[in-house]
Computed example of a mutant assay.
Amino acid sequence: MTVIQFPRHTEDLGTPLFVFLDLQQEYISDGRAYALSGRDPWWSNSLRLLDFARDRGLPVAHFRQLRREPFFNRATPFAEWIEEFRPRPHEMVFERSHPSCYSNDSFSTLLDSLSSPFFLLAGLTCESNCLSTIFDAHHRGHKTTLVSDASASKALGDHDEREVHEIVAEIAGLFCDVTSTSQIVSRYTGRKPSLAG
């Protein structure tokens, strides 16, 4: 019996929107309730991913939380961007007060206007903001990829940030692709910018 090997089909979803979530001072300011204890590897990988997208003219969107309470309050410096991740004038900026990116109507409208909505997600924090966005994307039939090493999670109970993040990445993998910064850079090197799809 002869076995014919067909080439494996890999779905090309086009160029993704690079989404950077809540890279704000609240998460890196010592003594603040939401401050993360570490910056590696999420900081360097988020910066690498952002630089990669910018260098190639790929579409970039930034999200930040703004709330009417002591944390993430617009009137405080803690709601401001981490300087290294400050959006450039031509990049998209979305604000919201709830965890999911879909709570911003303009973002939902943008994705609904695309024939094949697809975005990469990196940033803070995965146990709430990233997961809720991934769940909402899944229910809408939108494709998402979590860049796990360009993201971080807060500690929960007896579990430290690293442990929580590993568990969250496994949960996310049930609803979307989970990958690394290096894999994204390799996959999209040479890709032409486009949000059409």
Results as ranks from 00 to 15, higher is better:
V60Q: 04
D177L: 09
D105H: 12
D105R: 11
E80L: 04
T144W: 06
L121K: 07
T145E: 11
N104A: 15
S103D: 10
G173F: 04
V178P: 02
Y27D: 06
Y188T: 07
E11P: 01
R68T: 13
F94G: 06
D158M: 08
E166K: 06
R32C: 08
A122N: 07
K154L: 14
P99A: 12
H62Y: 08
G14I: 04
G38I: 08
L114I: 02
L121P: 04
W43L: 08
D40L: 10
S113A: 13
V185T: 11
Q5R: 01
R39Q: 14
D158T: 14
S182T: 12
G38F: 10
A33P: 12
Y27R: 04
L156H: 07
E69G: 06
A33N: 12
H90N: 13
S37R: 15
R67I: 01
E127D: 15
F107E: 05
A169R: 02
P70Q: 02
R48L: 11
C176E: 03
A122E: 04
Q183S: 14
S106A: 15
A122H: 05
P77R: 07
F63S: 02
T144Q: 11
G197L: 07
P59F: 12
N45Q: 11
F72V: 01
R187S: 14
S132Q: 12
E163S: 09
H98K: 10
E95H: 08
F94P: 04
D160T: 07
A172I: 02
F175S: 07
A79F: 04
Y188H: 05
A53W: 06
A169S: 15
T76Y: 06
F107K: 07
M92W: 10
P77F: 10
T144R: 08
S182L: 09
L114T: 06
T145Q: 09
G14Y: 03
Y34S: 09
H159E: 10
D160H: 10
A150K: 01
S180V: 03
S148P: 03
E80Q: 11
A75T: 13
V93Y: 02
C176P: 03
N45S: 11
L120R: 04
I167F: 08
F20C: 09
N104L: 08
P89D: 12
L17V: 14
V168N: 01
R56H: 15
S116K: 09
A75Q: 08
R88A: 14
F20N: 03
